[in-house]
Design a protein around this nucleic acid. Structure first.
Lengths: 230, 230
DNA sequence: ACCTGAACACCGTTCAAGT
DNA sequence: ACCTGAACACCGTTCAAGT
C-alpha cells in the first residue's frame, strides 16, 4: 500500500537491499515490543535500537526522528482498521440499517481486539505525535465508505447524511476508545459489543427519514425490535 | 475540594504562606499557558518555571516531577466536568429520559466548550500520565450520579442499569472527545450537540424495559418523537 | 550501501547555599 | 520557610569513520 507521508514524517530512506529491509522490520517489531513491555513514556530510541540489535545511528538512517518511527507504527495499525471497515461496507451494501450497524460495530471492535494491547499502547503514543493529518486522511476514508454504505440502505434514507455518518463514527470510535483505554475486561468487551450495536441501531432508526419497506416487526409496546447482534 | 492523591503524584508540599500560594498559582497558570502556546511536546519544566517567574528548583519544591504537575492541572479540569454532570443529575431527577439525555449532553459539551483549547491540550497531556486511577475515580463519580439519575426516570426502567449507564457515558465522552481532538469547528459543535442528544435519547428508549407512562406522542410512522434539544 | 559509536545539545531532577 | 542556580544523568540526534 502506498501512502502519502506528510512533510518531515517520511521515512528517511527506502530499504533497497535485503539486509536493510530486515533492519527496518526489526526496528518496527522492536518498537511494538518496547511499547508493550516498557510503556510509552519509557520508549526511547536507544532502547528500540538496542532491542532491534542495531545502533542508534542506524535507526536514524531510516527514520528522521522518534516521531516518524511511531508515526509509521501507528499508520500500519490504522490501515488495518480502515481496511476492516471498508470490507464490511462492501459486504453490507443494500442491507437494512440494523445489519449495517451490527457489521460496523463488529468490524471495528474486532479490529481493535486482535491486537488489543498494541491498540492501547498506540492510543497513548498517538497523543505525542502530530497526527492531525494522518487521522484526517484515515477519517475521510472511513467516512466515505460509511456514507456510501448508509446511502444504500434498503429500509431508510437520511436527510443529513454527512452529519449522521459523522456522529455514528464518532460515537463508535469514541466509545471503543474509551473502553480500550482502561484495559478492557472480557466482560466489558461483551457489554461493548452488544450495547454499542444497540446504540448504533437505535440512532440510525431515530434519524432515518423514511423506511422504504418495514422488514422489522414491531413489538406491541411500540419499541423497535432490534436484530440480534451476530 | 479534597481529593485523594495516588502515591507519588501527591504535590510535594502544601503552601502555608501567602508567598508560596502565589507561587503555586503562578506555576499552575503558567502550565496551561505553555500548553496552549508551545504544545504538549514542548512543555518542559524549565519553560513552565521560566514563564511562572520562578526557578526550576522552586517548581520541584511543590511537584515531585513533571507528571505530578500535569496531573494536578488535569485533575482540576476533570473536577469541573464532574461537578457539571452531578449538577445536571440533581436537576433532572424524575424527569423523562429524553430530557435526561438532553441535560447530560448539554452539560458535558458545555463543560468542554468553556475551555475548549485547554480541553484539547489536556487530552494530549493525559496520555503521557499514569491517569488510570484518576480517571477511575472520576468515572465512578460520574457513573454513580448518572445511574441514580436514570433509575429515577419517570417513563422508563432499565434491566441492566450498569451496562446502560456505562455505554451511555462511554458514548458521550468518546464522541465529545473524538470531536474535540480535531479542533472542532463551530459547525461541528452544533452537529455534535443536536446529533449526540438524538443518539442518547434513541439509545435510552431502545433499552428501556418499560414505559411507566407514555408522555411522548408517537408519529404515524411509528418512529419516536424526540424532544427538542433545548 | 549500510552500519557504528563517540559526541553534542537539551531536559528532568537534585541539592548545597542563600534570604 | 522559601527560593536559587549550578550540577548530574539521560535522551534525541548527528557525523566522521569504518565494512
Amino acid at each position: 500500500m502506498k501512502v502519502a507521508h506528510p512533510a518531515g514524517l517520511r521515512p528517511r530512506k527506502t530499504p533497497r537491499q535485503a539486509r536493510s529491509e530486515a533492519t527496518v522490520d526489526a526496528i518496527f517489531e522492536a518498537t511494538i515490543q518496547v511499547l508493550l513491555t516498557a510503556g510509552a513514556r519509557r520508549l526511547t530510541t536507544t532502547r528500540v535500537a538496542e532491542r532491534a540489535g542495531v545502533s542508534a545511528g542506524t535507526l536514524y538512517q531510516y527514520f528522521p526522528h522518534k516521531q516518524a518511527l511511531l508515526y509509521a507504527v501507528l499508520q500500519q495499525h490504522l490501515e488495518t482498521v480502515v481496511q476492516a471497515v471498508e470490507a464490511v461496507c462492501r459486504k453490507c451494501q443494500g442491507q437494512p440499517i440494523a445489519r449495517m450497524a451490527d457489521g460496523l460495530v463488529t468490524a471495528y471492535v474486532d479490529a481493535k481486539t486482535t491486537r488489543a494491547d498494541a491498540s492501547r499502547a498506540l492510543y497513548l503514543v498517538a497523543a505525542e505525535l502530530d497526527t492531525a493529518d494522518l487521522l484526517d486522511s484515515i477519517s475521510k476514508r472511513i467516512h466515505g465508505a460509511t456514507a456510501a454504505l448508509l446511502a444504500s440502505a434498503e429500509d431508510a434514507t437520511f436527510d443529513d447524511l454527512p452529519a449522521v455518518t459523522f456522529t455514528l463514527l464518532a460515537a463508535m470510535a469514541g466509545t471503543v476508545r474509551t473502553v480500550f483505554e482502561r484495559s478492557a475486561t472480557p466482560h466489558m468487551l461483551l457489554v461493548l459489543r452488544t450495547q454499542l450495536a444497540t446504540l448504533c441501531q437505535a440512532y440510525l432508526q431515530a434519524v432515518a427519514a423514511k423506511q422504504a419497506a418495514p422488514p422489522v416487526r414491531r413489538a406491541s409496546s411500540g419499541r423497535k425490535v432490534l436484530l440480534p447482534t451476530t
